[in-house]
Write a protein that binds this DNA or RNA. Structure first.
Length: 1091
RNA sequence: GGGCCUGUAGCUCAGAUGGUUAGAGCGCGACACUGAUAAUGUCGAGGUCCGUGGUUCGAUUCCACGCAGGCCCA
């Protein structure tokens, strides 16, 4: 019992606690113990084990862990299941790098089956490292049966969800504009565009062209484009609704015919020189070479007013499907370049498509040989036959043809001949190129499947308002704004390693089927077998793998016998993780009851970067299909930056390895540091020096306190006993218990508010300031004094109680050391199976808390005064003087204060004593609103008030001033000074110190000085604190005589059985300097006990 | 370009429903204590509370506009 653990060695202790937890299955037991209680549902966002975990993972996981541990201690059943996110681009890219292949090689050089096999292996590469981190940091989550997104069962649940979207009409096929390489014949990912060297500076012709107003003769809209080949696909023109436009009277530069054009006011100088405004409006002043045009501004127009006006198309190869060729609003329209009017080709630009959709304008499409809709440029990058003037011509030189003639030039020529070209320039800009063929990419329409999230917008927003966000601003701002502007979710990825879209379609698009379960697929394959389209049924196989290529080989059949082929895409991995509440339980195929208990989650926690990620996908799926939220509370954490505030990255070499950290300092300090340093949602600047400091200041102090307790408890054979009734305890114990209750209440509140930073800081402050630096420091004597009486046992009991309570309060954040304390303080079982303490108001004594706080401040003032006086602390001083108004709260603490500062008395000064000066100031807070500017006059009036008037005011409790009557709460009273004494004031407290020594006090000071020297010798001699001694002492006779009257005090303090005063310096001993001037000889010898 | 967050001592962070002396810890300097001692206490130096305007008797706090850093999205 009360074993000493020696100096702090957290990493080592943590290892043995880990071993114990594992052997006793403490985590599982702590969860199981609460089964039957209310469920607190927690979802673990699945990490990808494709890379090594970093310190930021420790941060996020500490937050998750501590909330779950806290709720478990509160009595909730908190099942926690680990999961793995396994699909997606990062895995694919790493595999491609390893195999030395590119995407185009998949299916040719490497089979899809082999490729996916490699992905499946690569994605779990660091699973062991992740599991090791989870365990080492004390993150309690069930690792033995994790959910894995590539599991067939997981995928089946995802299919079921997709089919529900499909049935609700929320899953639809459309196209999206993607970077596309005609030369390579493939779409490129955003990632491929970001490869170094992808962006090249190129020179393209840029045209400013005239779109003829439909009803007003000779009025044109001027639009600017750097991709002339998209002009045949023009469907609309976009303006900025808030911009100002001008109508200008001028001449067509090439035909010199009078004309009127509209463009943005800011663009005028780009097209018209100032000189032009002065020139007569006559065609002979047109200079085609320099571009000089005479012009007049006719009128100003608001962009808003242009919207809806119609124009004649430049080309009319295809009749548009619907209401094209009009002016629309575009938020992307800029005044930096061009005319402030933007040509919109929805088939070849992402902004264009978005704007067109918003305005219900159909893209310009025609039909290919099979009758399927196609844009005016085919996948090889050639104009389709319907574009008669340019049919078959490549829009860029994709084939390296030596005689390639840029089609852009011919389009310019064509327009010029028709008087529709206003200007042609060469434009130099950065443009992305295909990294393999080095050819410019095309933004091209690619078929894709979408979730119609835009139709859910209101529901998403409304449900979000019921989610508790920590901090709230992210829910309202970042997430809320995103939802309000949400657009349809493009689910398609033309990749290989992912959950395949369970949709089969006929070539002509007349038939389509979405599959929602393996059972359904199996039956569908059976039908298709009957029709002879399939030879065997792969879904019959017990290990059916729903990945590519297996599903690609399945051909289904339409009622009329038409074969149906799978849509080739896989889905966005974010859908995988958003499906986790259902798919982790293989819902609805299994576990319906468990699902209903654990959905929605009470709590999730991830980084801010998940706003558009997991937070979003969870929300969309739950809102769309279940009409509810997926999580009720979400705690958002910021990033972990290095100590300079830079993001940690391999490139900068500032990545901190969590394992090294935990081996060096321990998991608890790492967790504690991350939690206590700053609120979770702010970025944490990680500084190892501070972590080391945390070990020393908090864990070191707490551990010292335990060691102190254990040392004396061991010596005295303290036996655990219940707390005595509070009213029988000494004041200081009652104070500590009150503080413990206060701490409990405040820490509980912090946890309840998902603000663990506050909890950690409160605990730190309690341990360092109250428990260690005040309670233990003041009570040391009670622990080592001789008698084993009630008072001593009470001290042990109260201190042990406070330590245990501290352990429980800190257990969620620092589970290891809390466990250690629990065990060593003699409690059974694991602290994590204990019930979180609730605070007892009964033990609170608010006035005692406040008085003690003041007394602590007073002590600090007195220490500072002693320091100024130059009198050693060992020298007792006669008295401290304080104003009489302190009497009520200070009286009970007098003894403590006297002992702490080594005083003989505390004297209260009468209010009328000349020694106290009072000062009155207005209470700005209460008087400010009513007095307004006159408060300054009152302040100066109070300042000039004589002392007698102040005292009179204090006595009457009232003050009259210029017709106003003030009571005491309206005035701030300060005891300002005690002239003639050594005094100090701080925060309304004033104290003076009497440093006049009487001979008697001086002698006592000598005695204490002597005791001090003896203690040093005891220590140097290596004596145990309980060893008894014999003393022989020599001092000059005058001192010797004075000290003899303190012999019993000296003997008691130093555990001396005998003191012999010797007349002469003791031979063989060197003198000790006593009181800076006197030679002292002490001979110390251990007293052996005789039987 | 848009949304959100942050800006207080050399560093990491508190704080103030707007109130006249803005705090802590670390670091730095000085001293003390010595029955927790690889612990502890006291004192000191150190601040334009990012800037500018506004509201107010009073702004570091509220409002507006900026600046800087971060995250997400274009």
């Amino acid at each position: 019992m009360w074993r000493s653990l020696g100096p702090l060695r957290l990493p080592e202790w943590e290892q043995s606690i880990l071993a114990r937890w594992q052997a006793e299955r403490t985590f599982q037991r702590s969860v199981a113990r609460r089964r039957g209680g209310p469920t607190y549902a927690f979802y673990e966002g699945p990490p990808s084990a494709n890379g090594k975990p970093g310190i930021h993972h420790v941060f996020a996981r500490t937050l998750k862990d501590l909330i779950c541990r806290y709720q478990t201690m509160r009595g909730f059943y908190v099942p926690r299941r680990a999961g793995w996110d396994t699909h997606g681009l990062p895995v694919e890219l790493s595999v491609e790098k390893e195999l030395g292949i590119s995407k185009a090689d998949i299916g040719t050089k490497v089979s899809i089956a082999d490729y996916n096999k490699a992905c499946r292996e690569a994605v779990m590469r660091y699973k062991a490292t992740w599991d090791a981190l989870t365990e080492r940091m004390g993150y309690w989550v069930e690792l033995e049966d994790p959910y894995i997104t590539f599991d067939a069962k997981y995928i089946e649940s995802v299919w079921w969800l997709l089919k529900r979207f499909y049935e609700k009409g929320l899953l639809y096929r459309d196209y999206t504009i993607q970077p596309y390489s005609p030369a390579a014949g493939t779409a490129l990912s955003q990632h491929e565009l970001n490869l170094p060297g992808a962006y090249k500076t190129v020179r393209d012709p840029s045209l400013t062209v005239q779109f003829r107003h439909q009803t007003e003769p000779d009025l044109y809209f001027l639009a600017w484009t750097t991709t002339p080949w998209t002009l045949p696909s023009n469907a609309a023109l976009a303006v900025g609704p808030d911009f100002t436009y001008v109508e200008i009277e001028t001449f067509q530069p090439y035909t010199r015919e009078p004309t009127r054009v509209i463009l943005a006011k800011e663009s005028v100088p780009r097209y018209f020189s100032a000189e032009g405004a002065e020139l007569p409006l006559s065609p002979e002043f047109v200079d085609v070479r320099t571009g000089r045009l005479p012009y007049r501004i006719n009128r100003y127009l608001k962009g808003q007013d242009l919207i809806g006006q119609r124009y004649e198309p430049l080309f009319r190869y295809v009749e548009p499907d619907g209401d094209a060729w009009r002016i629309i609003a575009g938020d992307f329209v800029s005044l930096e370049e061009g005319t402030g009017i933007v040509h919109i080709a929805p088939t070849f630009g992402a902004d264009d498509l978005r704007a067109a959709r918003k305005n219900a304008i159909s893209p310009i499409l025609t039909s290919d040989a099979h009758g399927n809709p196609t844009p005016l440029v085919d996948k090889e990058g050639r104009f389709v036959p319907q574009v008669t003037d340019f049919a078959g011509r490549y829009v860029k030189n994709y084939t390296d043809a030596p005689d390639y003639r840029p089609v852009d030039e011919d389009i310019a020529l064509y327009l010029r001949q028709r008087g529709l070209l206003f200007r042609k320039e060469i434009y130099e800009h950065n443009y992305p190129h295909c990294w393999r063929t080095d050819k410019p990419i095309l933004y091209y329409p690619v078929e894709a499947w979408f979730i119609r999230t835009s139709a859910l917008r209101e529901k998403l927003v409304a449900l979000n308002q019921t989610i508790r966000w920590y901090p709230p601003t992210i829910g309202e701002g970042r997430f809320g704004n995103w939802l309000e502007n949400v657009e349809d979710w493009n689910l398609s990825r033309s990749r290989f390693w992912g959950i395949p879209l369970p949709i089969w379609r006929s070539r002509d698009g007349r038939y389509e089927r979405c599959i929602g379960s393996f059972e359904e697929l199996r039956e569908a394959v059976e039908e298709s077998r009957k029709q002879g389209l399939m030879q065997h049924n792969p879904v019959m196989h017990p290990d059916f793998d729903p990945h590519r290529p297996t599903v690609d080989e399945i051909i289904l059949v339409a009622p009329d016998g038409t074969p149906l082929y799978r849509e080739p895409d896989v889905i966005d991995v974010w859908f995988d993780s958003g499906a986790m509440p259902y798919a982790q339980l293989h819902y609805p195929f299994e576990n319906e009851e468990i699902f209903s208990q654990q959905f929605p989650a009470d709590f999730i926690a991830e980084g801010v970067d998940q706003t558009r990620g997991w937070f979003y996908t969870l929300h969309v799926i739950a809102a769309a299909l279940f009409g509810t939220v997926a999580y009720k509370r979400v705690l958002v954490n910021g990033l972990v930056l290095d100590k300079e505030g830079n993001k940690m990255s391999k490139r900068l070499g500032n990545v901190v390895d969590p394992f090294t950290l935990m081996e060096r300092y321990g998991a608890d300090p790492t967790r504690w540091y991350l939690i206590s340093n700053a609120p979770p949602w702010e970025n944490v600047r990680f500084d190892e020096k501070r972590l080391a400091e945390k070990v020393r200041s908090f864990f070191g102090t707490l551990h010292n306190t335990y060691e102190f307790f254990a040392l004396y408890a061991r010596i005295d054979g303290y036996q655990i006993q219940p707390l005595p009734p509070v009213d029988q305890l000494p004041l200081i114990d009652r104070w500590l218990l009150s503080e413990v209750e206060k701490l409990t209440a405040e820490v509980s509140e912090a946890y309840e508010n998902y603000y663990p930073t506050q909890a950690a800081r409160l605990i730190e402050d309690f341990v360092i300031e109250r428990l260690s630096n005040w309670y233990v420091r003041l009570n040391r004597r009670r622990f080592w004094k001789g008698e084993k009486d009630q008072d001593k046992w009470a001290a042990f009991t109260v201190l042990r109680y406070a330590l245990l309570r501290t352990a429980q309060l800190m257990a969620p954040i620092a589970p290891f050391y809390a466990e250690l304390l629990w065990e060593h303080l003699g409690e059974r079982g694991s602290i994590h199976e204990s019930d979180f303490p609730s605070s007892t108001l009964l033990w609170r004594d608010l006035s005692l808390e406040e008085s003690m706080e003041k007394a602590r401040r007073l002590t600090s003032l007195l220490h500072s005064l002693r320091k100024q006086s130059g009198v050693r602390v060992r020298q007792p001083l006669p008295q401290a003087l304080v104003p009489a108004s302190y009497k009520n709260w200070l009286d009970p603490l007098t003894d403590l204060l006297k002992a702490e500062v080594n005083l003989k008395a505390i004297t209260y000064l009468d209010d009328h004593s000349q020694a106290v000066y009072y000062e009155l100031r207005p209470n700005y807070r209460t008087l400010g609103p009513s007095l307004g500017p006159r408060i300054k006059d009152l302040a100066s009036y109070l300042h000039t008030l004589p002392q007698e008037a102040i005292l009179e005011t204090l006595q009457k409790g009232k003050l009259q001033w210029e017709g106003h009557s003030f009571s005491l709460p309206d005035l701030e009273i300060r005891a300002q000074a005690l002239p003639g004494w050594l005094h100090a004031s701080e925060g309304g407290l004033t104290v003076a110190l009497d440093t006049r020594l009487t001979p008697e006090l001086e002698k006592e000071g000598w005695a204490r000085e002597l005791i001090h020297h003896i203690q040093v010798l005891r220590k140097n001699a290596g004596l145990e604190v309980t060893d008894r001694i014999h003393l022989r002492i020599h001092l000059p006779p005058s001192y010797q005589k004075a000290l003899q009257s303190f012999a019993s005090l000296i003997a008691e303090e130093t555990l001396a059985d005998s003191i012999e005063w010797v007349d002469n310096p003791i031979a063989g001993l060197s003198p000790i300097e006593f009181l800076d001037s006197v030679s002292l000889y002490i001979d110390i010898s251990r007293a052996y006990e005789h039987a």
